[in-house]
Computed example of a mutant assay.
Amino acid sequence: MSTVREVQVTFDCADPRSLSEFWNEVLGYVLPPPPPGFADWDAFRASLPPELRNSASACVDPAGAGPRLFFQRVPEGKSAKNRVHLDVRAAPGLAGDDRMAVLEAEAERLVALGATRVERHDPAPPMGAGHLVMQDPEGNEFCLD
């Protein structure tokens, strides 16, 4: 029998700190505790050489149920559609107009945080309950589902 593994989702990005703060707001996540010996992340960053101060960040589910998200700075920008993306479950159990109203309200909240709305897919039974395609502030696609 195989062992169940934890999953971390890693994002290549230009600004790890800002992107982790965005996803904290989207998911209700928090920054993990700073490394031992540091009162907070700002103190840790101040201890690093300037070129490393925003090279990585992370966010975690405070309840410990969801995967850790890790953000690492890379020199290149995003150049194509993601092959893997997150589905943010904003309307589980809802259907039809009620579902789409909840997704639309969540899309408005996320746009105010820096997301971009890409397209709407209306419900199309039996295969699709309806969802919204979005992008985070660095252009990574995700869906409101």
Rank of each mutant, 00 (worst) to 15 (best):
L19E: 02
L19F: 04
S20T: 05
S20L: 01
E21I: 12
F22Y: 06
F22R: 00
W23N: 03
W23P: 01
N24V: 01
N24L: 06
L27N: 09
Y29T: 02
Y29I: 06
P33N: 10
G37N: 05
F38A: 08
D40H: 03
D40A: 07
D40G: 08
D40T: 02
A43I: 00
F44V: 13
F44T: 09
F44E: 06
R45V: 00
A46T: 08
L48C: 10
P50T: 09
P50W: 03
P50E: 13
E51V: 10
E51F: 09
E51Q: 08
R53T: 06
R53F: 05
S57A: 15
S57H: 02
A58L: 07
A58E: 05
C59Y: 04
V60L: 13
V60N: 02
D61T: 02
P62F: 04
G64W: 10
G64F: 11
A65E: 12
G66W: 12
R68K: 01
R68G: 02
L69S: 02
R73P: 04
V74M: 05
V74C: 01
P75K: 02
E76D: 11
A80W: 04
A80L: 08
A80E: 09
N82Y: 06
N82V: 09
V84A: 11
V88C: 09
A90L: 06
A90H: 03
A91H: 13
A91I: 14
A91E: 05
P92A: 11
P92F: 07
P92W: 12
P92C: 14
A95Y: 14
D98P: 09
R99L: 10
V102S: 03
L103K: 08
L103Y: 09
L103C: 07
A105S: 14
E106D: 07
A107M: 09
L110E: 10
V111T: 14
L113Y: 04
G114A: 05
G114I: 07
G114D: 02
A115V: 07
